[in-house]
Design a protein around this nucleic acid. Structure first.
Length: 359
DNA sequence: AAAGCGTGGGA
DNA sequence: TTCCCAAGCTT
């Protein structure tokens, strides 16, 4: 792991934020790219938020990037540019919780402190045969084990044991170095420790997406309208095509010829072929316009929300009203915007369809 | 306390 | 396809 080839507290901090709820293999290329662009706290603090989010694009949980960015400015202003070397200072930074403070404190600064993540929780729950240990209990237990001469190594070893041997399902107790000490193994309860957390219910949503395009008078190339998402909530600060919840979805009775009626069956067959259907024959006054074309549906699963995006390509002649809050961007400009994965897919199909149509 | 917050990979 | 999950934090 590249972040183990350095003693730079900033680099170790960045790696720990990236590793929150994220696999090591996923984080590695992002870490490399991040450290190239933002090699120091100062470089990160100086950067614009759009560029910070762009480097995080695709990694998910974007508040991590925004918090890291804010924290870099806190470190510059309140800590003379040095990452705090004590638990209290680390914990005060946005995005740094109990685990991350313990990890950075022990790995970067040699503090004798525990770092309890999901792996450690599972390992300790089994070693001690505790069904659902509290955070306090875990930190007290591990805290007593951490050796003063190698706290970082010890914490990482415990996590790695959980990640490679003491697996959530079917742990390989045969090769476990501490199987003789494991109370769950002795009791045969290792498969039931710790008890799984209840999963949140997943909401489902269908969104009609407007991909507005235009050709600027006297300038080459097409422009697309995108808007920035609000500063809080899902995908905060990321850019997207304007969209709204599809009216009438899931409702059996549709009282009038509406968007919902027109956008059900035809959209599915179109998406299945992966092509673009011409829907220019729809009656005037439908609100979409004569030059509207469907783009393939995009289904995307967030942690707690499954969304089906139904993008429609629609030409807005010069002077036509833009969707609220949206701005025009050339393809080159779009490439610099931080876009959620589902929106990247829509951009791709939109530009392909336009390139074919404008030839 | 529990829910909100992304994404990709593997079973 | 669907579900589960992966080095958590914030509100």
């Amino acid at each position: 792991m590249p972040w183990r080839e350095t003693r730079d507290p900033y680099a170790i901090w960045v790696s720990e934020i990236m590793l929150q709820q994220t696999r090591v293999e996923t984080a590695i290329p992002y870490f490399q790219s991040w450290m190239e662009r933002f090699p120091t706290v100062e470089a990160l603090a100086d950067a614009a938020e759009d560029e910070v989010l762009k480097r995080w694009e695709g990694l998910g949980y974007y508040s991590r990037a925004r918090n890291l960015h804010r924290a870099a400015r806190v470190v510059r202003e309140r800590h003379s540019g040095n990452v705090p070397d004590d638990l209290e200072g680390l914990r005060s930074l946005p995005g740094v919780g109990p685990y991350t403070a313990g990890a950075v404190g022990s790995i970067a600064f040699g503090l004798r402190t525990p770092a309890v993540d999901g792996n450690v929780r599972r390992v300790v729950a089994r070693l001690m045969d505790i069904p659902d240990p509290t955070t306090r209990e875990l930190e007290r237990t591990v805290g007593a084990w951490v050796p003063a001469d190698a706290p970082g190594d010890f914490n990482q070893a415990l996590m790695e044991l959980g990640a490679t041997v003491c697996l959530p399902r079917t742990p390989t107790c045969q090769v476990c170095p501490v199987t003789a000490l494991c109370r769950a193994r002795k009791a045969g309860t290792q498969d039931e420790r710790p008890t799984p957390r209840r999963r949140a219910t997943v909401r489902r949503e269908v969104r009609n997406v407007t991909v507005a395009w235009r050709l600027e008078a006297g300038e080459p190339g097409v422009r697309l309208a995108l808007r920035r998402r609000p500063d809080a909530g899902l995908l905060a600060g990321m850019w997207e095509f304007p969209s709204q919840i599809a009216p009438g979805i899931g409702v059996t009775e549709v009282t009038e010829a509406s968007e919902a009626t027109e956008s059900t069956a035809p959209a599915k067959s179109t998406a299945a072929r992966g092509g673009v259907a011409d829907i220019g024959s729809r009656p005037p006054g439908s609100g979409v316009g004569e030059r509207a074309r469907r783009l393939p549906e995009v289904r995307h699963a967030f942690s707690h929300l499954h969304v089906t995006y139904r993008p429609v390509l629609v030409q807005r002649p010069g002077g036509a009203a833009l969707p609220a809050g949206a701005e025009w961007f050339t393809p080159t400009q779009i490439r610099a915007l931080p876009l959620p994965v589902a929106q990247q897919s829509i951009v791709k199909s939109a530009l392909e369809a336009l390139e074919a149509a404008l030839d």
